[in-house]
């Protein structure tokens, strides 16, 4: 299928873009013209990525089993990578920190590369997934995850920058990194909330219960609780810096376990 080939090209594109950023950074050549070209390349890749997702959607209709390409681990990983790339581009424009892209791209590349190991054929939708809630639920969850991923990257940078004075000079200011850690969660958190609420509405419709303490549900709640503790610590207790960064890392660990780890526990979300 063309969409699968496109995904392969996009993966190597992201990889070369990441390598380009790294070389530019190591040689200290993050001059404005280089930055501009690298960013333009990233945006171009993201557009191709978008069209690959759209094409897969069209291909599924041509096969007569049309459904949104969000129905299994392969498709959700592609969408997760797409969301993270989008979040990185938005964060780059908002905060002007290229290092964020440098450290965020490996996450995107790794996620895309992981899909090489999976079955990429388009399968018809099983009855449990035949619902209009699917699209809203999955999109909201992954946009939330993407926000948390950006926060995680900034948190790592902040922790590294605090630990090493040598790197500190080459990284954005602590204040800016702290802002990115906080503001990305501020965007991700309501998205995750929408994801959980739409998931609950769907569960009520499909299983007759809006909450069943299924491991995926429970872990998404754990993630939500960690990030709400994060926001309360920031807004009401005025926490900043290292403690916020550590909470952000903890939250992203919960995100990753919600996404990947839960598959090792028995539950209802077995198709993801």
């Amino acid at each position: 299928m063309i969409s699968t080939d496109l995904n392969t090209y996009v993966t190597f594109g992201y990889l070369s873009c990441g390598v380009g950023y790294l070389i530019a950074y190591m040689t200290g050549a993050l001059a404005s013209s280089v930055r501009k070209w690298m960013l333009a390349f990233l945006i171009l890749l993201w557009c191709v990525h978008t069209s690959a997702i759209g094409l897969r959607w069209i291909e599924s209709y041509q096969m007569g089993i049309g459904h949104a390409p969000l129905s299994n681990l392969y498709e959700s990983l592609i969408f997760f990578a797409w969301s993270m790339a989008l979040a990185l581009i938005v964060a780059r424009f908002r905060f002007g920190a290229d290092v964020l892209v440098l450290l965020g791209l490996p996450l995107v590349v790794f996620t895309m590369a992981y899909t090489f190991l999976l079955d990429h054929s388009i399968k018809p939708l099983i009855p449990a997934l035949q619902s209009n809630w699917l699209v809203a639920h999955v999109i909201a969850c992954f946009l939330g995850y993407a926000g948390f991923a950006v926060s995680f990257v900034a948190a790592l940078l902040l922790l590294v920058s605090r630990a090493s004075t040598g790197l500190e000079k080459r990284l954005p200011s602590h204040h800016l990194l702290d802002e990115i850690v906080y503001r990305s969660v501020l965007v991700g958190f309501p998205m995750l909330t929408v994801g959980i609420v739409t998931g609950a509405a769907w569960a009520d419709y499909a299983w007759g219960s809006y909450w069943s303490w299924d491991p995926k549900e429970t872990w998404s709640l754990v993630t939500w609780l960690v990030y709400s503790a994060f926001l309360h610590a920031r807004l009401a207790r005025g926490w900043t810096g290292r403690r916020m960064a550590l909470l952000s890392v903890l939250g992203f660990a919960a995100v990753l376990f919600t996404y990947f780890g839960v598959n090792y526990l028995p539950g209802l979300h077995s198709y993801f």
């Binding site: 303490w213 429970t218 872990w219 754990v222 609780l225 960690v226 709400s228 503790a229 919960a254 839960v262």
Partner: peptide, 14 residues
């Protein structure tokens, strides 16, 4: 309480 609830929920999935 948020942290305690999170920790407890994790126990319940194990």
């Amino acid at each position: 309480v948020l942290f305690l609830l999170a920790a407890a929920s994790v126990v319940g999935t194990i």
